Simulated scan of single mutants.
Amino acid sequence: MAALFLGMNANAARMDMVDVSNNNGYMSTAEYTSMRNEFGVKAVTVKISEGSTYKDPYAASNIANVQAAGLYINGYHFARYTTKAQAIAEADFAGQTAKAAGLPVGAVLATDVESQEANNRSKATNDRNNAAFMQEIQKFGYRADIYTSGSWANNKMTIKGKTGWIAAYPYVVSGKNWYSTNHAWQWSSTAKFRISYGGFDVSQLNDNYYTAGQKSTVKPTNKGAVKTNNQKANKNVSKPAASAKWVKEKKTYTLKTAVKLHTSTSTSSNTIAILPAGTTVKTDQAIIKGGYRWVRQPRFNGYGYLATGPASNTLEYVKSGATHTYYTVVSGDSWWEIAQRNGLNVYTLASQNGKTIYSMIHPGNKLLIK
């Protein structure tokens, strides 16, 4: 799912729901029990499928272990559809895959709409396709919802009040409850849990939509630990400067990976072009803004702006003249498997490609290995 840099107030949001996929690897019942008892997690939403062919290999074990830990269970499908017919076909594929993996009737099976395919479609087309998917998925006994980013909600598609699971990772939140009229707000992709490895996507639930239709009477056993551990986990704060200012930075870089060139210093601004890996970029200024480090590229008719990474990171570029080795992603690959095969740390692999281990990778993608 989509990830931005997060700087959070320690009391900003609750860890009501965690979402996991093959990128998290095998998750045991003990890990889910720890999330429930020590952090107050109520629900887990697991990846089920993607497009019309990919089945998450960990879906069945995640579903079984989440239920064994006494948590509510839901699923999501990463959408690739561009037409109504494709949306219905993907819903049938997701529903059948969910049934086979053991997702219980009454659970939510959300459509995760954030792909480039959807970005290239009109709002009306996305609305039609999403409606078709959600109507079809209900035929399998699942409840429907849409997951998307805050910048896409009611821009790329319609998300009505009292519906939707919205991802938005603000630079600083001062106790504000974002997207309080929607079912859920995903506010971090880097939350930590005591006995689990790596960072996790976590969401605050604003109603009981993701904890309904299933029987679960298990509650956290240590309220003091829940409060303390949530505060610690949310404490990955990077305090912003009093005011952002442009600084001179005349440099020449060669892109490691494809990067969007925006019309302004906002990830929701229009895209001028997608610059492919290997493109030479000359910059004249840089700024920290909106949780990102941006550089400005002078162009013949003005400027283009590139987000180089989270505000806490250095440039996600490499200097011109460097030689590199790339790996082409094939079906079934995960960050972990690629890192293992090439003797790399999984976080290093993702970082040097300008991504996190929770970013989606797809067959045909080229990843920098060295």
Score class of each variant (00 low, 15 high):
N155H: 11
N365H: 15
S122Q: 09
A12C: 09
W294Q: 06
K251R: 15
W165M: 03
G332K: 08
I274L: 10
G175K: 10
N236R: 13
V318S: 13
K42A: 02
N301L: 10
P276S: 05
A13V: 05
K192F: 03
S115E: 06
N353D: 08
Y142P: 02
V346E: 04
N9P: 00
I287V: 15
P170G: 04
W335A: 04
K370F: 10
W246E: 11
V18I: 11
T356I: 07
T45G: 04
A184P: 02
T279R: 10
D207N: 15
K239D: 02
V41D: 03
E31Y: 05
T308G: 10
T265Y: 00
N24C: 07
F133H: 00
G102P: 00
N126V: 01
T265F: 03
Y292I: 09
T308L: 11
M35Y: 08
N270G: 15
K256H: 05
A64M: 05
P170V: 07
G198H: 09
W187R: 11
N74L: 01
K227P: 03
A350G: 11
I357T: 15
V46F: 01
Y32T: 03
M1A: 12
D201A: 12
T125I: 12
Q96W: 05
A110S: 14
Y197H: 13
S188Y: 00
N24R: 08
Y72G: 01
V66I: 14
G51C: 02
S269C: 10
V18N: 04
N120I: 00
